[in-house]
Nucleic acid binder design. Sequence first.
RNA 1: GCACCCAUAGCUCAGCUGGAUAGAGCAACGGUUUUCUAAACCGUCGGUCACAGGUUCGAAUCCUGUUGGGUGUACCA
Length: 591
Amino acid sequence: MTIDNIIIAGARNAVSELYDVRISEDQVTLQETRKEFEGQITIVSFAFTRFSKKSPEQTGAEIGEYLLQNTAQVTGFNVIKGFLNLSISDGYWIRTFKSEILKPEFGQFAANGKKIMVEYSSPNTNKPLHLGHIRNNLLGYSVSGILSAYGYDVFKVNLVNDRGIHICKSMLAWQKFGNGETPESSGLKGDHLAGKYYVLFDKEYKKQIEELRISGKTEEEAKRVAPIIVEAQTMLQKWEANDSEVINLWSKMNSWVYEGFDITYRKLGVDFDKYYYESNTYLLGKDIVNEGVEKGVFFRKDDGSVWIDLTNDGLDQKLVLRADGTSVYITQDLGTAQLKYDDFKMDESLYVVGNEQDYHFKVLFLILSKLEKEWAKGLHHLSYGMVDLPTGKMKSREGTVVDADDLIDEMVDTARQRTEELGKVDGLSEQERSSLYQMIGMGALKYFLLRVDPKKQLLFDPNESIDFQGNTGPFIQYTHARIKSVLAKAPHLLGLEITHTELTLSERELIILLGNYPKIIKVSANEYSPAQLANYIYELAKMYNKFYHEEPILKAAKEEERIFRLQLSSAVAAVLKKGMRLLGIDVPEKM
RNA sequence: GCACCCAUAGCUCAGCUGGAUAGAGCAACGGUUUUCUAAACCGUCGGUCACAGGUUCGAAUCCUGUUGGGUGUACCA
């Protein structure tokens, strides 16, 4: 039983005994006592005045007195306005520290027997990854870790968008302008090579549109009849007809791109249990459409196209199959959803996709539940905001993107400079140094992106480098390294029994904050929000640094203090490390 | 037009069952190292929580409206 539950139970008994009213658990509001007052847990007792018919102060005092008499852990109280501040015995905090926080599995929930699939990344194979994709990948990876810590059995999958007109654009431009260029011959990473031709296509396309307009066509018509776009469409048709030449080109370019993606994924430290490819799934979904027509959920128009009417749900009519019988995006997604369920039989499924697709997923989930798919109620969309630049939106075609590989390299390079300036690399081998720079640079980048509420759009200014001080990844990494350095000086104290009985203010605060870790995991998991966890870890690191300055650890007067403070430090380091791992960030032993 | 998301310090962000005097970091200014790592710590400066109503003992938080920003509303994916 947690202390919160003990206090809630005590408060319910108090109200029942004193005022003869039975109240439910959620009628008792608890909060942490503000720093300026004595105590650790506060009961907000305004609501109880209804039952006591007395002033908030008097009501609080009566309940406080009751708890003091009847609840062993409560050692004192004070009432300020309607706030009943309770002091909990140091013995209780120390016992909690020893019996829970110090355990290696602290923060890992028992398996809940549920399977969840997390789909993230979902790149297009016509261009390299940019900063927006980094946010997606980090969110997906981190949420997967958090869900796993919360007790889920997690499957990470990547649905690769490897077909369609946009892929043909890169292919066509390469065919026309590439002169057989390869990653080897050009020294370009495969995904960057494909991206280069995607941009070239767009340039040529725009040029042709302009020429057609000068010759008197409307913009709309020009866009439709420009030779290069017509060629790309022809190529897509050939691809769908299994034309061997097109398929070979497609395989070749895709393999370059995958090699490039793998490098970026490795640098980001993300991975997947399974890949799905749209080239395999794009024909799926037609069975579901038929099923929907039979069930009367969908209807067919005169031209043969199939629709669903969602106007009663506040949405629009939506096309689910073209008149010529071919699939649209939502058809595919219906089919893919079924396929994924058939493969994994998961209880829940999370799609990590930008908020520009909110409407799409609303429709998708609604259709599946109308089709009476039992599993549809387990589908969720982790909708995150765009990453914007001060100049506005990033656009691949126009080259106004922050490239993922460039940014990563830059971060690692900055980490190297800072670390060398601080002279912290003495005694490290070349390899240790480079792995440290990698860890710190990526830590700064990942924390920067994950500390912000996923649903908010995020501003990135390329002219202002990401900080390494204050509320940052490196600050937390530093705190971890700092603790490790102290621990290394007296390892024998870690195994000794804690006999300490009285806590200083900062010791008590640290234990309470450490004790909140499981709650934070729960909230982060339920809300799919690594930001909650990130901000918690920062608070913990900050509080530890304060403690570190205030209290001597190895230089404490009494041995029992040295033992306790060292083990407290060790527990903080463990939670920092675990928490950061769930954000996909590693922490160094030294920095 | 309609729908969804967002608006808190100069900047970037916390603030989560409605609760006490709204918090951090950065930036600016000042201080702390013969003591366990100064990527740290302490202090000063900085707020009409977009605006206007409403609900409540109590609102940054809930409701309504307005303004501003973003996104969507494709037989693109």
